[in-house]
């Protein structure tokens, strides 16, 4: 059972997404996809609302969430880093790139940094094999990434964060 009560507007947001797909059980994956797009992850409370809206068991929803590696119940960082582990990227050294990201950020795959800024995930082929190995941060794509560039990519976002904070301060 959910321990955290969702804010009313959050619940409304989920309901709107469900309504967009006509509250159809068959649209579950699309609904989950869109809701995860909005929150970054799918906590238990969110799944309960979706199950209720689509008139299906929560267990089924949870079953789908745990089946597809794309869905996650763990909060993602503000800048989700994804390293492609598709065949092309893999043979061109994606594993070393991943190892470097893990070393720099001190987190494992599927985890977020303590400040909640970065999280690391693996994905399978973004369809840019010509740029292998590929790393995406949020919507942005980095191609031909070598392990020695990892530090620079992270620094780029750290700068962005610092600038943002300077502005608000």
């Amino acid at each position: 059972m959910p321990e955290i009560k969702l804010a009313e507007n959050t619940v409304q947001l989920i309901k709107d997404v469900c309504a967009e797909f006509e509250n159809k059980e068959s649209e579950l994956i699309n609904v989950l996809h869109k809701v995860q797009g909005k929150f970054g992850y799918l906590p238990a409370e969110v799944q309960e609302v979706i199950a209720k809206e689509l008139k299906m068991g929560v267990a089924k929803v949870y079953g789908v969430v745990t089946f597809y590696s794309f869905f996650t119940m763990i909060p993602q960082g503000e800048f989700p880093i994804s390293i492609c582990m598709g065949t092309a990227c893999y043979v061109r050294g994606a594993e070393q790139v991943l190892a470097e990201f893990k070393r720099q950020l001190k987190v494992e795959v599927g985890e977020s940094t303590d400040d909640g800024k970065f999280s690391i995930n693996c994905l399978r082929c973004v369809g840019a094999c010509g740029l292998a190995p590929v790393v995406t941060v949020g919507e942005k794509v980095f191609g031909r990434v070598a392990p020695n560039q990892v530090k620079k990519i992270i620094a780029e976002y750290r700068d962005e964060i610092n600038n943002e904070e300077a502005k608000t301060a």
Binding site: G57, A59, K60, Y62, G63, T66, F67
Partner: peptide, 10 residues
């Protein structure tokens, strides 16, 4: 239609 049991994980 109780919806309590489902296959989970992969």
């Amino acid at each position: 239609t109780v919806g309590v049991l489902s296959a989970i994980n992969r």
